[in-house]
Every structure is written in C-alpha cells, then in structure tokens.
Simulated scan of single mutants.
Amino acid sequence: VAYFHKNVSDQKLVAKFDNICRQWEGLKAGNPSPSFNAPDINGKMVSLSSLKGKYVYIDVWATWCGPCRGELPYMTKLEEQYAGKDIHFVSLSCDSNKSAWEKRVQKGDMKGIQLHLGTNSDFMQKYIINGIPRFILLDREGKIVKADAPRPSDPQTTKLFDELLKK
C-alpha cells in the first residue's frame, strides 16, 4: 500500500485503490459477513441472519461453471459426513438463467440449502467475487472465519471443520 501511494500520483487511481483496500479490510476474519436474501427452489426467501447459530459454509457457483460442477460430488460427501453437525451448507447460484438452476436443483441429488442469488448481487460485490466457485466460511454469529475458504475437494476443509466443531 505504501509503495502504491509513493509511486502513483493519479488521484482517481489512488481513490480506486484505497476503496478496494477498504473492501478487503472488511473481509478479515472476525468481521460481520455481508448479508444475502435469496429464494430457495420453492420461492421461500432465506437470509443469512436466519442461519445464525451454526457455522455456514457457502458455495457461490453456477450451472455453466465446469469447476463448480466438479466440486458438487465433494460437497455432497461433506454434507453427508457432517449431517446433524453444527454447520449449514449453503449453495448460492449466480446463474443468470434461473430456469437452468431450477432444473439442476430439481434433479434432487444436491443436498444442503439451495438458493438462487442471480448475477446482480450485492453479496458478491462485497466479497469481491470475480471468479467461481468461491467458498466462504462463517461462524455461528455470521462473522467471517475465511472469506476464501478451501474447496470441498481440499482435505484441509475437513480438518478446518473438525477443528471448528470442537469449539
């Protein structure tokens, strides 16, 4: 940051840089998470605040995303492994084509809480999500544990969950 400020004199660039830095600061562990309010497959609105009391593992994904689809079997395994434990598994679809998301969810093989966020998401902007899949882990009070959590396929994920669930 100091190097940037020392070497860049264009005030518009400095302002943009400082804004991005403030955004990243807001995503530090322990800070309250940006919120969301999105419909499930039945149209029921689900908000982040309604999930308080358990850890929340969020998968931001889309049906057209190959790496996202590649993580789905691992997500299912995690959900089965931690069924009945103190953790919600939430999949937030950023599909612009809601019917593609509905069709995928209606297959019935996806567990957890399935929500359609769409493309114009304040939640995604606040988390500076420029690529998917993106995984986010929140504590029982909705505070950030990891703004860029490991993927379900990463063995570190179960280690992280086991450590947190001991608390």
Rank of each mutant, 00 (worst) to 15 (best):
G66S: 11
L117G: 08
K107S: 15
I58M: 03
P133D: 07
A83I: 08
R69H: 02
C65T: 07
M45Y: 00
K28C: 15
D154V: 02
L117Q: 10
C65A: 06
E80T: 14
L78E: 01
I128M: 12
G30I: 14
K98P: 04
L137G: 10
Y127K: 14
N120P: 00
Y3P: 00
T63C: 10
I129R: 00
R134I: 08
K159Q: 13
C94S: 14
Q114N: 12
S50G: 04
Y3W: 09
I113K: 13
S9Y: 02
P39W: 09
S9L: 01
S9I: 03
D148K: 11
R140W: 06
S49T: 15
Y55R: 05
T158G: 01
F135P: 00
V1K: 05
P150Y: 14
W24E: 14
S35R: 07
I144Y: 02
T76V: 15
S121N: 05
T119Q: 13
K52I: 04
K6S: 04
F161H: 00
I136D: 03
L92P: 04
D86M: 12
G112M: 03
L92R: 05
Y127H: 15
R134A: 14
Q23G: 12
Y3F: 09
D10V: 06
S93T: 07
L48I: 12
V8L: 03
M124L: 11
E102D: 14
I132S: 01
G131L: 06
Q156T: 07
G84M: 06
K126R: 15
D40M: 11
P73R: 05
K16G: 09
L137S: 11
K98T: 03
F89Q: 09
D139Q: 10
F4V: 14
S153Y: 04
D162T: 09
K159V: 12
L13P: 00
A100R: 09
A149Y: 01
L137C: 10
D122G: 06
V145S: 10
E80F: 00
I87W: 04
P150H: 13
G43M: 04
F17W: 13
T119L: 01
E71R: 02
R134P: 07
S9C: 00
L13E: 09
P39S: 10
T76H: 06
M124G: 12
L165G: 08
V60Y: 03
L165P: 02
R104P: 00
T158K: 11
G131Q: 04
I87G: 06
P133H: 05
N130Y: 08
R140N: 08
Y82S: 12
A15F: 00
R69I: 11
K103E: 14
G70E: 15
S153I: 03
K77M: 15
P133K: 07
G66Q: 13
N120Q: 11
F161L: 01
C94A: 11
F123V: 12
E163K: 15
C68P: 06
